[in-house]
């Protein structure tokens, strides 16, 4: 699907750019965006290193395992392919909590670590597993309790109550999150998703442990 969307965005941009006479802007945007992408990635190095270091201590100290066991029932339901008590579950839980608290700086490194640990269970090098997609869905539609940025803009523009959108935001983001998770669990049952599932030949989580 990403192939089609990427193709679509690019073709529409070029054709509309030609018709609108904005081709120069389109080309400039391509060059600038590429530079911005690298800046964003490089900007992550420090914070990534810090959190990955802390996570390693938490792992060696056994905290991640304890965390993973604590949410076993939820994890078993959402991520049936992951073996009980796998460190990926602990990392995912820390990522989700950080997101809820609005700690984006901590949430991303923790989430990337979790995704990497999910990858260690993935027999394919380049195809997403059901667990990885469900975890991504939780992050693309994560529940936001305090949308700080937009509250700040509202306050700046003289809103009588900049905070009044908190409750509506919690409602909308909760709906979005439930919908995204449900969609990921339902869409994995489609024939095309089944055929591309890298774990299609592995019956259950136990099997993965045996293969280790």
């Amino acid at each position: 699907m990403l192939n089609y969307i990427w193709f679509g965005l690019m073709m529409i941009a070029l054709i509309v750019g030609l018709i609108n006479g904005t081709l120069t802007e389109v080309t400039n945007a391509a060059v600038n965006s590429a530079a911005v992408a690298v800046e964003i990635a490089l900007g992550l190095i420090g914070i990534m290193a810090m959190w990955l270091g802390i996570m390693k201590i938490a792992e060696k100290g056994g905290l991640i395992k304890i965390l993973a066991r604590g949410i076993r029932p939820v994890a078993r339901f959402l991520f049936p392919e992951i073996p009980d008590g796998h460190p990926a579950i602990g990392a995912m839980m820390m990522n989700i909590t950080a997101n809820w608290l609005g700690l984006g700086n901590a949430a991303t490194p923790l989430g990337l670590k979790a995704m990497d640990q999910l990858q260690s269970l993935n027999p394919s090098a380049d195809t997403a597993t059901n667990s990885q997609i469900t975890f991504l869905a939780i992050n693309t539609a994560s529940i936001t309790f305090i949308p700080m940025t937009v509250i700040a803009v509202r306050a700046e523009l003289g809103s009588a109550n900049p905070f009044e959108i908190i409750s509506t935001g919690i409602f909308a983001s909760t709906c979005a999150c439930i919908a995204a998770i449900t969609a990921s669990r339902l869409l994995q049952k489609l024939p095309s998703s089944r055929a591309s599932n890298p774990m299609r030949n592995i019956k259950s989580a136990e099997k993965v442990v045996e293969n280790d």
């Binding site: 990403l2 990337l112 995704m115 195809t127 990885q132 975890f135 693309t140």
Partner: peptide
């Protein structure tokens, strides 16, 4: 999607985009 799947080296995203966009759509409706 780019950051999380990029970190794991995932190129074939299967139904990930559809799931994310359904979440976005429902979020706007809600």
């Amino acid at each position: 999607l780019a950051v999380y799947f990029g970190a794991a080296g995932i190129r074939k995203s299967r139904h990930a985009v559809a799931s994310g966009l359904i979440g976005d759509f429902v979020g706007v409706m809600a």
